[in-house]
């Protein structure tokens, strides 16, 4: 029952982030929706490998006897977070450039093709 609540809340957060991305008229709110989606995904990826009663996978003896959490999803999340940083920075750079060119950040004003 606890696992259903936990995973269900994370999936709800992902779907709400998708809704923010698709339904907003401000360009910065689109980038915020992208941020909510990536945060939900990273938390989900880390929490897959939780072992009950386990510690962090950093050891000081060569032969360890305690249980440890799964280290593979943590390594995957490290890469994912750095890629999300690069994506958000590029998206915000495009928003600033669009503001300089058209003078507004409403998405309604950026739909016309100029010739």
């Amino acid at each position: 029952m606890l696992s259903v609540i936990f995973y269900g809340l994370l999936m709800l957060m992902f779907v709400i982030g998708l809704g923010i991305l698709l339904l907003s008229r401000n360009a910065i709110k689109v980038v915020m929706g992208l941020g909510v989606m990536t945060t939900a995904l990273n938390v989900f990826l880390v929490s897959i490998g939780y072992v009950e009663g386990g510690t962090a996978p950093i050891f000081f003896d060569v032969n360890f006897t305690t249980k440890a959490s799964d280290p593979v999803p943590q390594a995957l999340t490290l890469t994912s977070i750095v890629i999300d940083i690069a994506l958000t920075a590029l998206a915000l750079g495009f928003v600033v450039y669009l503001f300089k060119k058209t003078g507004s950040i409403e998405l309604r004003d950026m739909r016309r093709l100029r010739g």
């Binding site: 950093i58 490290l78 940083i85």
Partner: peptide, 11 residues
């Protein structure tokens, strides 16, 4: 040796 590494320290 400790939690962290290249990416975290650079940021």
């Amino acid at each position: 040796l400790t939690p962290g590494g290249g990416f975290q320290g650079g940021v």
